[in-house]
Simulated scan of single mutants.
Amino acid sequence: MYTSKTVQNQVIAIIADMIREEVTTLIKGDNAFFSIIADEVTETHSNREIMSLCLRFVARNNDQPVIKEVFFDLCYLTRTTGFTIAAAIKESLKTHGVDIQKARGQAYDGAAAMSSDKAGVAARICDVALMAVYTHCNSHILNLSIAASCKLPEIRNMIDTINSLFLLFNSSPKRQTFMELVLDVESTQTRKRHIKGLCKTRWVERHTCFETFQEIYEYVCISLEAISWPHLHPELELVTPSDLTSEKWNWQRDRETTVKAQGLLASLQKPRVYNGLRCCEELSPIVKRNDNQIAKEGYRHCLSI
């Protein structure tokens, strides 16, 4: 049965309200307190600012205290000032029957609009919830520290190279298919088929990209070399190598692709770029573990309180 998008959205809204109502019942008691977690981002499809609002509180599970962190609401923002963001948080909580005066904590990033003690979101929430202590998100601090320490030219150039390679193959089905052919012909060990894009906002989420790229590094180089100079890899000249009647790729007709491939191959073959990749691959799991440890320490701290 066909259901229009309007009805689908209504069903989703009803389900969201039911889930939200179940959550709010846990923080409506006299001794039920919570913390506010919020962050905003530009929604690329509609080109609008949107804020995610989460609540953190202690619940009971078989008489055992359990820390819960739940998604609560999405709010579109007309501006990203402290006044607008704070007003959106207060309005969302009021609309859904949550008493903001029971807030005992706030966690945002360190931007001035969020953290300013005079006009930021933290200060404006404290005007109505006096005991809502502001905490700069520890994961965000870790992310800022790593970003600041990775301004070395070797690391920066390596990241630029990976991003360029991701765009080169991801933006063209033909190039992506060719790299998959190279992996099928040249490798029998890896199951990876795509270069992963680097997370733009969180360094701690980049470890999977570095691991994947390190695993297929050799075959990416072969792909670029075969695009730049097809005669060096005659086994890859045909679209379907096992079929002698298959047409050729004819990369020489695509001058833009061959020029980009030659430039990226030259960058990949530089020792500094490869060493930068190896360093990031080795350090990323450590950073990820530290990020997880930060979350666990916060959990234990809440339980001790």
Results as ranks from 00 to 15, higher is better:
residue 114 M to D: 01
residue 85 I to R: 00
residue 91 E to L: 12
residue 124 R to A: 06
residue 124 R to C: 01
residue 74 L to H: 05
residue 100 I to W: 02
residue 99 D to A: 09
residue 122 A to N: 09
residue 94 K to S: 15
residue 120 G to Y: 06
residue 90 K to F: 05
residue 137 C to I: 09
residue 86 A to E: 05
residue 96 H to N: 14
residue 101 Q to A: 11
residue 74 L to G: 05
residue 88 A to W: 04
residue 112 A to C: 04
residue 73 D to Q: 12
residue 121 V to P: 00
residue 95 T to F: 06
residue 141 I to G: 11
residue 101 Q to M: 11
residue 143 N to Q: 09
residue 115 S to Y: 00
residue 131 M to T: 07
residue 122 A to G: 00
residue 102 K to C: 05
residue 119 A to W: 13
residue 102 K to E: 00
residue 99 D to W: 04
residue 78 T to A: 12
residue 132 A to Q: 09
residue 114 M to F: 04
residue 88 A to Q: 13
residue 132 A to T: 08
residue 117 D to W: 02
residue 135 T to F: 06
residue 95 T to V: 10
residue 90 K to A: 08
residue 126 C to F: 01
residue 121 V to A: 07
residue 95 T to N: 15
residue 128 V to G: 07
residue 133 V to M: 15
residue 80 T to Y: 00
residue 126 C to Q: 15
residue 129 A to T: 03
residue 73 D to N: 12
residue 139 S to M: 12
residue 116 S to V: 02
residue 75 C to L: 10
residue 113 A to K: 00
residue 131 M to P: 03
residue 89 I to G: 03
residue 119 A to M: 10
residue 95 T to Y: 09
residue 111 A to Y: 01
residue 119 A to T: 15
residue 132 A to P: 05
residue 114 M to L: 06
residue 107 A to H: 04
residue 122 A to R: 05
residue 137 C to L: 11
residue 82 G to Y: 02
residue 127 D to P: 05
residue 119 A to K: 11
residue 123 A to H: 06
residue 112 A to I: 11
residue 76 Y to M: 11
residue 125 I to K: 04
residue 144 L to T: 06
residue 112 A to H: 02
residue 90 K to Y: 01
residue 127 D to R: 13
residue 129 A to C: 08
residue 87 A to M: 09
residue 130 L to E: 12
residue 91 E to P: 00
residue 133 V to I: 14
residue 129 A to W: 06
residue 95 T to A: 13
residue 135 T to H: 10
